[in-house]
Design a protein around this nucleic acid. Structure first.
Length: 305
DNA sequence: ATCCAGGAACTGT
DNA sequence: ACAGTTCATGGA
């Protein structure tokens, strides 16, 4: 991590292949998003630490990310945690040089890598949030998934108010572990989704499931297998979480409908590609499947085309 | 109305 | 291991 602490604000120095504006476009993909707000080139985000809520205004000035604290200046330790959170959120640990080399000679990715150069996977550093969000999104359309998330966050999460607006943080697993299935079903979650999410919250509260344990295993299949042992987590969710939370660039949610639609639109196919056809397209993506997928999602969401 | 949506567990072979 | 079925609800 490359950063400087100026007490009232932070500067974070991203690696070479980075485009803040592109990342912001991804963050702004849904106007139903409750966990951050975008205004005039800045992202406003409430970051939850152990027992404090830190409201941040994040912008890009003179080749670095500037983080301002809007309500109060956090402690020295908390400021470092904020820097770490943002470093992870924008996936700044990755060196994308190799990805762009591969993409420059790839039939599918060439245009996308060029068009969205500097876009990084926008991560979900909190493991519980990543798992819960993935489960909410299973087998339903994206607008409804956002509706579920909004209800879930506004029912069980915490907020702070600044200049008349509310800024929310995702509910903690401790809070969700104490709920009944019926509490969550009220928000129009299916019984199963409610069970899955509460079950995961309980596992995390019991210390059986932690991000640290998953990060210790670096082998792709080992991590995928441990995630898939969790009830409610199949291959798609495991890969989604590895991509958005655990920073595995080779994770590949190959069954993802968004990925299929993106390929169909990009390549002008008559129908969605089969898994076998996707494997063919992805033949050269080894090691960078997560980035390929993310760029395809960005394309799917591109309103300028 | 019918099909599909950023799937997964369960059941039967 | 593998295919078929069930879960449930909103959007097109």
């Amino acid at each position: 991590m490359n950063w400087m602490d100026y007490e009232s604000y932070l500067e974070i120095y991203p690696p070479k292949e980075f485009n803040f504006k592109e990342c912001l476009i991804f963050l702004g993909r849904s106007d139903q998003e409750v966990l951050h707000q975008i205004k005039e080139g800045f992202v406003y985000k409430l970051i939850k630490m152990k027992d404090s809520l830190i409201l941040c205004k994040i912008g890009y000035i003179n080749y670095f990310i500037k983080v301002e604290f809007l309500k109060r200046i956090p402690s020295t330790a908390a400021r470092k945690k904020v820097a770490e959170y943002i470093w992870e959120w924008f996936d700044l640990e990755q060196n994308l040089e190799e990805f762009y080399q591969m993409a420059s000679v790839d039939k599918v990715l060439k245009k996308l890598a060029d068009k969205y150069f500097g876009l990084r996977i926008m991560c979900i550093p909190d493991l519980f949030e990543a798992l819960a969000w993935a489960i909410m999104g299973q087998q339903i359309n994206l607008p409804f998934a956002y509706t579920l998330k909004q209800r879930f966050v506004e029912q069980f999460g915490e907020f702070t108010t600044f200049e008349g607006e509310r800024f929310w943080s995702f509910p903690s697993f401790e809070k969700i572990a104490s709920l009944n299935v019926e509490d969550v079903r009220k928000l129009q979650f299916t019984t199963r989704k409610a069970e899955y999410i509460i079950g995961i919250a309980k596992d995390m509260k019991g210390g059986k499931l932690t991000k640290e344990l998953l990060l210790q295993k670096r082998d792709y299949h080992q991590v995928q297998k441990s995630l898939m042992r969790i009830r409610g987590v199949g291959a798609w969710t495991a890969d989604y979480v590895m991509m958005k939370c655990l920073h595995h660039t080779s994770s590949f949610p190959i069954a993802d409908v968004g990925l299929h639609n993106a390929l169909k639109n990009l390549l002008g196919l008559k129908k969605k590609p089969s898994i076998a056809e996707i494997k063919d397209y992805a033949a050269n993506w080894e090691g960078w499947q997560a980035y390929a997928t993310f760029y395809l999602w960005r394309f799917l969401n591109d309103k300028t085309i």
